[in-house]
Nucleic acid binder design. Structure first.
Length: 907
DNA sequence: GCGGATCAC
DNA sequence: TATGGTGATCCGC
């Protein structure tokens, strides 16, 4: 992996966080627990790991460790590791970026700068005019959340340095541990060196989630639309609440103080347990440890003259005022009463400021920026940019190179920044330096992706990697199913033992969602990577699978109309959403294979390692490396197929409707059904198929080093396809679609194909044309399509059906590899074809030196041969066109079916 | 659309 | 012995 170009170019890639810009992009905030969800930005080990290498000379806390000492210990523990090596490498890349930026800066003329200044100032003026100080935004942040929960539930941990996590990674530490330099995102074993008496508590996410729920119940009272960022952090817009609260009687703002853990004191005015003798509320908020901000506001503009600054405490009750500050005190009070945990909070006119504020008096404090411009600007003045959400360690470093550390400096350099950074970035900078941010909280938007990834000790055997990949796909599919999501882009992520990360993605025309569908794609991506490094194995420490490209509502509707299965088990009608099959069946299919694992792959690996810590390489390893579908993997596949077949037999009586004649085919086995379809199609299609397969053999012999495309793909399909035999989707009949397709005069050779005349005659006529590939190698479609106007294909609204291909789909012979596909699921079949096409075409292009750019030959010889990368890209783009074309045709079979079916109904 | 990078939590 | 997982976004290609 070379340095990406984008890192070398002058413009840097900096991201404006959604919550800080005026336009707030809705982000799904999963309330799942994430390892780092309690990380505190300014206190994160990884964020300044490299900074620690020598130059940090701050003095440390009294009883903890000297910062110098901390740095030394960390450096010793990390030095020489692969992780460290990679950190150094990344640092070099950043330095390179900075160097490029400085060069670019050196070339800027004063005239350019003046011009930029005018432009930026004009924009700044507009921003200033749109400044909105009318909202009151609160950011609530639980203090050392996970650690606090653990301490609460285990009194023994009190007053001891603790952290939540494992020897490999910590998610949170308490404040005691932080004095030793123990922080979030630090591996536990290093933390132990810093603080040998550190207690590492394994995380208990269910518990944190339960506590989080309690907190959120409280927050709802102040803003039912509050925006939770994680288990321990949320934004509230209390503007409306403040308005209403103005007229509230004291009673409504009165809370009783309880000792200990009573959970009852959650509603105003509610009588609760009396304080037990000698046990007072642990709340420093109300008693002796009251943090400074509650006593004397640090900012003159913070003084609130409306009412007494502190809540009025009478005996065992307390009345909060009506100001924002009082509201937030009330919130924190209630949180503490309910959970015995403390929270910090920030109050400001926008989210960006509120977030920074909540950090100001942490822990267990709050801070407000009053809603006037002067207060905002005073606050911003000396604020280090790094404190602002969205400015990470790289941005900080880059800006530091320009002499920018505080927001004032950020503002001063605005013209320069506009010349050195992308528009998005400098706009973001300008917002920050003016103290601007979002004033409304985005509602949860649509999710854009879903993923699973896992870290493990090195895995370098291909078959284990495939197996792992399959497991991840299953996991992902389960998650997707819970949310009812389907997507078109599958991405795998690989991290090798040197911590280098790679992602590889593939987008298919139809949405996928099942483990089988995803695995077909993911596996090909993985295979490509394995092949690329052959004969060296990929030495992985992490693998991930992601699905994205979820259709929006409109696209979904479209998909419902067009991407539909054409096989319909007669008595198992499913909703026409065409979505996932309710998976009792599917689960049964999957189980046999999974049962053979019994334990998960990771569990297995773990126990293996325990059994034989010296996992030395063997001859076997070498053998298996030589074939990506190694023997054992084939065995696995075979086993799976067998299992699936066994299951299939147990369900072998189903009612199908023939896609050709549309007659119901009683209770027959799938095999019998397939025979019927074959018979129905009849005619020369068979000979067509045989020709195709002879082609495929010819081509397979040409691939020298590896197995042929066809073989590899067919093998990989096996499991997935058979699992899908029962998983058919209902064909939704859409009259609109039908009208559209039929009314449009066609302009291609296949005009007649879409007449309203259904079934047999037409079908057999079509089948006679069955995939016309006589003279071409396996992926002749590459060649033949090159002559077509691909652009027009793309634009076609209602593409004309190309029925010989349709037929070849119906008998489920892959037009690329020529192998019969046993699946009856059109989507799955499509996936296979796409993958097959993609790979086949790329290889074919390489072999035949077809100009990947799809340009006339001149251009090919005019320049040197494109590099591997551009070659692949171009090939992919070619493949995409082909897929689009193929896909359109596949879609049309559905249209044909619909027409035919409607026709029949009319009869 | 892809891949790398950055960021948040 | 040992350095996470999930999701989003940006930008150049």
């Amino acid at each position: 992996m070379g340095t990406p170009l984008c890192c070398i170019l002058g413009r840097t890639l900096l991201r404006a966080p959604r919550s800080l810009l005026g336009v707030v992009v809705a982000v799904p905030r999963q309330l799942v627990y994430t390892m780092g969800s309690t990380k505190e930005k300014s206190d994160n080990y990884k964020d300044d790991l490299l900074l620690r290498m020598g130059l940090n000379d701050n003095k440390a806390g009294m009883e903890g460790l000297d910062k110098e000492k901390i740095n030394k210990i960390i450096l010793e523990a990390t030095k020489g590791s692969r992780f460290y090596g990679n950190e150094l490498k990344k640092e070099k890349q950043v330095n390179q970026r900075i160097e490029n930026m400085m060069q670019q800066k050196a070339q800027i003329t004063s005239q350019q700068l003046r011009k930029a200044q005018l432009q930026v100032d004009r924009f700044a003026m507009e921003l200033e005019q749109s400044r909105d100080l009318n909202s009151t935004i609160v950011h609530i942040d639980m203090d050392a959340f996970y650690a606090a929960v653990e301490m609460r539930d285990n009194p023994e941990l009190k007053d001891k340095p603790i952290a939540v996590g494992s020897m490999s990674m910590l998610t949170t530490s308490n404040y005691h541990a932080r004095r030793f330099g123990v922080r979030a995102a630090m591996p536990g074993f290093i933390a132990k060196r810093l603080c040998p008496q550190l207690i590492i508590v394994p995380p208990n996410f269910d518990k944190y989630q339960a506590v989080s729920r309690e907190v959120k119940e409280i927050l709802t009272d102040y803003d039912p639309n509050f925006m939770a960022m994680s288990l321990d952090e949320a934004y509230l817009n209390i503007t409306k609440h403040l308005e209403e609260r103005k007229n509230w009687p004291e009673d409504k703002r009165k809370y009783f103080i309880t000792a200990g853990n009573s959970l009852e004191n959650d509603k105003p005015g509610k009588e609760v347990d009396k304080l037990s003798e000698g046990e007072r509320s642990v709340s420093p908020l109300l008693f002796e440890d009251s943090p400074p901000d509650l006593q004397s506001p640090g900012n003159p503009f913070q003084v609130n003259f409306e009412e007494p600054n502190n809540p009025q405490i009478h005996q065992n009750s307390i009345v909060f005022g009506t100001s924002a500050e009082e509201v937030v005190k009330e919130i924190r009070f209630r949180i503490e009463q309910k959970t015995t945990l403390t929270a910090s909070a920030g109050i400001a006119p926008n989210t960006m400021l509120a977030k920074v504020c909540s950090d100001k008096n942490k822990p267990n404090g709050q801070y407000q920026i009053l809603p006037n411009r002067q207060a905002v600007m005073d606050f911003i003045k000396d604020l280090p940019i790094r404190k602002v959400s969205g400015i990470g360690k790289v941005t900080e470093k880059m800006l530091k190179a320009l002499g920018i550390i505080t927001c004032t400096e950020l503002y001063q350099q605005r013209a320069l920044l506009s010349l050195l950074f992308s528009e998005t970035s400098w706009h973001h900078f300008l917002h920050i330096s003016l103290g601007l941010g979002s004033t409304h909280l985005a509602r949860d938007g649509e999710r854009k992706s879903m993923s699973v990834e896992r870290t493990f000790s090195e895995i370098s055997k291909a078959e284990e990697q495939y197996s792992l990949c399959q497991e991840l796909c299953s996991e992902l599919a389960q998650d997707l199913q819970k949310k009812g999501l389907k997507g078109r882009t599958v991405t795998i992520k690989l991290k090798n033992v040197n911590f280098e990360v790679k992602t590889r993605a593939s987008t298919v025309p139809a949405v996928v969602s099942t483990a089988e569908e995803i695995f077909v794609i993911a596996k090909e991506l993985l295979r490509t990577e394995i092949d690329a490094d052959f004969p060296h194995p990929l030495r992985l420490r992490l693998m991930g699978v992601r699905l994205s490209g979820f259709p929006n509502e409109e696209e979904k509707k479209h998909q419902q109309r067009s991407i539909i299965g054409f096989l319909q088990p007669g008595n198992q009608a499913l909703p026409a959403t065409g979505c996932m099959l309710e998976t009792t069946d599917k689960d049964q299919f999957l189980k046999p294979a999974q049962m053979s694992h019994k334990k998960s792959f990771f569990d297995k690996k773990r126990s293996e390692r325990k059994a034989s810590p010296q996992d030395t390489f063997t001859c076997e390893t070498i053998n298996k490396q030589s074939l990506h579908t190694s023997q054992s993997f084939q065995v696995l596949n075979k086993k799976m197929s067998e299992n699936l077949e066994a299951v299939e037999k147990s369900h072998n009586c189903q009612t199908f409707i023939c896609p050709v004649c549309f007659r119901e085919q009683g209770s027959i086995s799938l095999e019998a059904f397939n025979k019927h379809v074959d018979a129905c199609l009849d005619g020369p299609s068979v000979s067509g198929n045989s020709k195709m397969s002879s082609c495929s053999h010819a081509s397979s012999t040409e691939v020298n080093e590896k197995e042929s495309v066809c073989d590899s793909v067919s093998l990989c399909e096996k499991q997935g396809y058979e699992t899908h035999q029962k998983n058919t989707e209902i064909t939704s009949i859409d009259p609109v679609e039908m009208v559209e397709t039929t009314s449009k005069p066609s302009n291609t050779e296949d005009t007649s194909a879409l007449s309203n005349k259904p079934s047999e005659e037409e079908c057999s006529g079509l089948s006679s044309k069955s995939f016309n590939m006589e003279h071409c190698p396996q992926n002749s479609c590459t060649v033949s399509l090159k002559n077509e106007d691909v652009g027009s294909l793309r634009r076609q609204e209602s593409p004309q059906p190309n029925l010989y291909e349709v037929i070849s789909d119906q008998v489920l012979v892959c037009p690329v590899c020529n192998l019969e596909q046993k699946t009856s699921d059109l989507t799955l079949f499509n996936v296979h074809v796409d993958v097959c096409l993609n790979k086949g075409i790329i290889q074919e292009l390489r072999k035949d030196k077809i100009n990947p750019c799809n340009q006339p030959k001149e251009s090919a010889k005019s320049t040197e041969l494109p590099n591997e990368r551009s070659f692949q890209n171009a090939a992919k783009s070619n493949a995409l066109h082909l897929m689009e074309k193929l896909f359109e045709k596949k879609v049309n079979i559905n249209a044909v079916n619909n027409v035919s079916r409607n026709h029949r109904c009319d009869k």
